Simulated scan of single mutants.
Amino acid sequence: MGVLGEAWNWLADGANWSGESGVWHRLGEHVYVSGLALLISCAVALPIGLWLGHTGRGGALAVNVSNVGRAVPVFAVLALFMVSPLRSAGYVPTVTALVLFAVPPLLTNAYVGMREVDRSVVEAARGMGMSGTQLFRQVELPLARPLVMTGLRSAAVQVVATATIAAMVGQGGLGRIITAGFNTYDTAQVVAGAVLVAALALLVEGFLVAADRLLGPVRR
């Protein structure tokens, strides 16, 4: 039996799904950390990116500053927080590191999406007497939505995949299944943990695609 077959047997074993070290518990931890980090990232990056794209001022600087988060390894940020007073603050270090990682694609896509709206459409809307707020909500935001959603899907998948790094500092999530497999030299468990993370990332992206299609302005 190959490694994939052994990984399947590991996943099919009900004992591996129950208890504090089981899949369901680790999945709940993973979803909690990833979801919280993504919500905070959206609350920070999207308003800034959309507003800067609307005004056309300072956007390039903001995007360049946010992209610094891509150049800094997430594990290095997490390790730095773990030796600070925040090390006893639960998931705060992990969530903070993931937020720094998720902000760049969200802010960049929001800004670029707003700036790529056809200027002739914007000028026509102004000529019709629309205020700045009406222009933002009724013209620019709907037209920028596809690129904004692309950034959201990208950030969500990256956060779900990267959240496994929390296990390296003893915190929860599906990464604990992978690290436990490494510690016991159980290759099947390592592969099973990786499959679970990949499946969750695909599920999240599929959910966002479906939500975008169902709730988008074209559907309405």
Rank of each mutant, 00 (worst) to 15 (best):
Y32R: 13
W17D: 00
V122K: 08
G58R: 04
N64M: 12
S21W: 14
S18C: 00
P93A: 09
A45T: 11
N67K: 06
R26G: 06
A89V: 06
E29M: 14
G59N: 01
L86Q: 02
G19K: 05
L98H: 06
A37N: 06
N9D: 14
L98N: 00
P104C: 03
Y111R: 02
T55A: 13
V121Y: 09
V92S: 10
V44L: 15
G113D: 00
S84Y: 06
N64Y: 02
F75S: 05
T96W: 07
S88G: 08
N16S: 04
A102I: 05
L50P: 01
Y111A: 01
L50T: 09
G22S: 00
L86K: 00
A97S: 11
P85Q: 03
G22H: 06
M114F: 09
A45I: 10
G56K: 02
V31D: 02
A89P: 05
A60F: 10
R119T: 13
V117I: 04
R26D: 09
E6G: 14
V68S: 09
L107I: 07
M130K: 09
L36D: 03
R26C: 08
F81M: 10
A62N: 00
G69H: 04
V72T: 12
A102S: 07
G127N: 08
D13S: 11
V95I: 15
R26A: 13
L52N: 01
W17Y: 00
W51D: 05
N67Y: 07
G58V: 10
R70V: 10
V122M: 10
R119S: 14
V77L: 14
S34E: 07
A43L: 15
H30F: 11
N16K: 03
M82Y: 06
V44C: 10
C42H: 02
L36T: 15
A76D: 10
E123T: 12
A15Q: 11
L80H: 03
L98I: 08
S120N: 15
L50N: 00
N109D: 01
Y91H: 13
W51C: 08
A37I: 09
V23I: 14
G113T: 02
G14W: 12
L106H: 05
R115P: 01
Y111F: 12
M114L: 05
C42F: 07
M82I: 09
A60G: 13
L39D: 06
L36H: 03
S66D: 01
N67Q: 15
G22C: 02
P105T: 11
G35L: 08
L106N: 04
R26V: 11
W24A: 08
